[in-house]
Write a protein that binds this DNA or RNA. Structure first.
Length: 558
RNA sequence: GCGCCUGUAGCUCAGUAGGAUAGAGCAGCGGACUUCUAAUCCGCAGGUCGGGGGUUCGAAUCUUCCCAGGCGCGCCA
């Protein structure tokens, strides 16, 4: 609807140009928004105010000129009026809204789908946890956010590739191997030393048991045993990570291995290119990249004086390779503790002429877990942390995902397990799900009463005349453009608020019927009942589609 | 010290590309189920949008300074 109005406005301004009512100047940036105050109509635009400076006329005057020159062959607008300092407020004709409603019903599961991203392929990298331990709750937030973002992008027509980058080449894997080996040795000799920077979590002992069940670590040399522990440990952890993600409803198209980056020669090739272009230099036995030429605050080492590459080398290479693979844009979801790396990775891309906005990096703030009124401090080093697996098992996938999606990614999130575990109204996930279940229940009731929906809805929908019904129809009309907005802003949490809002409007509507039977969906008047059934069916569709994009189930019964 | 993020109701947070009178949930108080699901709804109360300046028709939103909190500033991974 907003899009239609936008086109209408542009045509109208054009018309004013041709009539000489307005000077031919460039169209300014303007917005069409839904006013908070219902008295201001269904839509409002600030176009006249934005136009004031180039037209050199008062906004209100421009507003009435545009209204006079309105081009509206479809009969979209019922009323247009000048308001406030120079807004134009629009009221759309009921017919138009009803058309939107029947479209929602016809499109069903495809309602909200669009093609705005057509022709664009996007690489979304998220989670990318090291296979040196289980996923913790912070990874869960990234997984929920990333997965939902991918679903929304795909729904908006983007060609999305979901990728998990596996750090399987560096020191940390070696450390896992040493930790596992040490735990194995400690089974017989508790005084066996544990590596200083080793992984302390209990899971390491479990890995040690599993590895030693399969292999006799005593008959092979220490080095080989550590290598074996590292390799097997990685496989075990990785399997666990995949398993956890799967039960969390998160899938990936591609698992990109850092080791492959080395073995395939890609890393060397990318560095050669940078070297040829004079972006690298030797200094004190190490090799550096001149990221300061591109906005970083200091140059960075990519090869240490011991000959090993820094992790940054593979990171540069990985991202340059992403670009080379032909993606029109890339999105990374990182933990906010990595924000210091943003300027340097962007600098490295710029050094190869890749524009800064090709890569969007979403920084995800910390999750604080609360239980029994106490914060559960997490420390990976000390091995004390709540895993995503534990959280899912205790709280349930729907609730965890929903809560992770209630906050903007750059705002820290307090996760109160006591609230989220409750099976009652305090738990926010049920509010939306309940609306869905309630609608299903209405349909069961209608069926009992022998009321069924006809094929065509159009004529019947005219019976929807209540303010609440019209408001619901308008709210639902926002859904497609909301998704487009999210695809632009990458702010998935807005979907959560939208669905909560829609559910609230529905619950309110439903409750009208508890006071006055005339306002029930299923009434004595069959045609009216059918119209309302179409309405709530549309609500069910929007909620189901929205929850689907969030990876949250839409139950028929609760 | 430098950089990034955050600061909105008692608490947790929204606030749609700068728009008109700043919202929700929870907590508090008072109401609504012989009824299509009360996991719901209605009402009341609750705010110098951290503070000061600036930009303009208009600022929670942009800018600058200050205050408070979180995180990051390795030839670690």
């Amino acid at each position: 609807m907003k899009e239609k109005l936008n086109a209408l406005l542009i045509a109208s301004v054009d018309n004013c140009f041709n009539q000489g009512a307005l000077k031919k100047t460039a169209l300014p940036e303007f917005v069409i928004e839904i006013p908070n105050n219902p008295e201001h109509g269904h839509f409002a635009t600030n176009l006249p105010m934005a136009f004031a400076s180039s037209q050199k006329r008062p906004p209100r005057e421009i507003a009435s000129i545009i209204i006079k020159g309105l081009v509206d062959p479809e009969g979209l607008v019922e009323k247009a009026e000048v308001a406030g300092p120079g807004f134009i407020n629009f009221r759309i004709r009921d017919e138009q809204w009803l058309q939107g409603l029947s479209q929602t019903i016809n499109l069903d599961g495809d309602y909200g789908r669009s093609m705005v991203g057509k022709g664009q392929n996007v690489l979304v990298e998220f989670v990318s946890a090291n296979p040196t331990g289980p996923l913790h709750v912070g990874h869960g937030r990234g997984a929920a956010l990333g997965d939902t973002l991918c679903r929304i992008l795909a729904f908006c027509g983007y060609d999305v590739l979901r990728e998990f980058y596996i750090n399987d080449a560096g020191q940390q894997l070696r450390m896992l191997g040493e930790s596992v080996y040490s735990r194995f040795k400690q089974m017989d000799d508790p005084s066996f030393p544990f590596p200083e920077k080793g992984y302390h979590g209990d899971y390491v002992m479990e890995v040690a048991r599993k590895v030693s069940d399969k292999h006799d670590l005593n008959i092979i040399g220490r080095e080989e045993a550590i290598r074996l522990c590292a390799e097997s440990g990685k496989d075990i952890m990785f399997e666990e990570i995949r398993e956890t993600l799967k039960s969390f409803g998160v899938s990936f198209d591609n698992w990109y291995s850092e080791k492959d980056l080395f073995n395939s020669g890609i890393l060397d090739r990318t560095l050669d290119t940078l070297r040829e272009e004079g972006r690298l230099y030797e200094h004190e036995g190490a090799e550096w990249i001149r990221t300061t030429d591109f906005g970083d605050d200091k140059d960075r080492v990519i090869r240490k004086n011991d000959g090993n590459f820094t992790y940054f080398a593979s990171d540069i290479s990985y991202h340059l390779e992403k670009h080379k693979r032909g993606f029109s844009r890339a999105i990374n979801l990182w933990g906010a503790d990595h924000h210091g790396y943003v300027p340097r990775i962007k600098a490295a891309l710029l050094a190869r002429g890749i524009p800064e906005n090709w890569l969007s990096i979403l920084l995800i703030q910390l999750v604080k877990l609360w239980k029994a009124g106490q914060e559960m401090k997490m420390s990976k080093r000390a091995g004390s942390f709540v895993t995503l697996r534990e959280l899912i098992d205790e709280v349930g996938v729907d609730a965890v995902r929903f809560v992770f999606l209630t906050k903007n990614h750059d705002s820290p999130l307090d996760f109160d397990m006591d609230i989220v575990k409750k099976q009652d109204s305090e738990n926010p996930v049920y509010y939306v799900q309940y609306a869905h279940a309630r609608i299903c229940s209405i349909f069961r009731k209608a069926e009992e009463d022998g009321i069924f929906l006809p094929e065509k809805s159009d004529a019947i929908l005219r019976r929807l005349v209540l303010d609440q019904e019209k408001a619901l129809i308008r709210t639902m009309a926002v859904f497609p453009s909301l998704l487009v907005d999210i695809a632009r802003s990458l702010e998935s949490h807005r979907l959560t608020y939208y669905l909560t809002d829609l559910a609230a409007s529905f619950h309110r509507y439903f409750n009208l019927g508890t006071k006055n039977p005339e306002y029930r969906v299923v009434t004595q008047d069959i045609e009216l009942s059918q119209a309302r059934l179409f309405l709530v069916k549309a609500i069910r569709i929007v909620i189901a589609n929205g929850l689907g994009l969030m990876g949250v189930s839409a139950p028929q019964k609760m």
